[in-house]
Amino acid sequence: MKWLLVGVIVAATTVGEVLQAVGMKRHGEIEDFRPGALGKVLGLLARNKLIIASVALMAVSFFAFMKLLTVAELSFAVPATAATYVFETVLAKYLLKEQIGWVRWTGAWLVACGVALLFL
């Protein structure tokens, strides 16, 4: 049960966050943080299909995570779902065409190793 929930969380979060990144980039940088402007942004995002799909997948991930917290410790649940991080970085490079230099790659690998160590 524990690992099935981890699988659901990893798949839903990976696809959900990549869709969210694409949707937010297409929306453009949020620069005005006044309540009225934020309300307008939320209205636009509520009609953005990529964001809708991403929020639906994040909701699946969230409820699976809530269930996981009832059968596992927080210090297992949080790092266990970090496998998403590896898949998303690869998708960011090849799908989103982000430029990832050696400093960012080194940092990314250190974080991946750190997350793996948290499992041991």
Partner: peptide, 18 residues
């Protein structure tokens, strides 16, 4: 796990410089 935490902090510090 403490070693993992140290690795993560180091990685975050590096990425935050980009």
């Amino acid at each position: 796990r403490w070693a993992g935490i140290l690795f993560i902090m180091l990685g975050v510090w590096l990425v935050a410089r980009t």
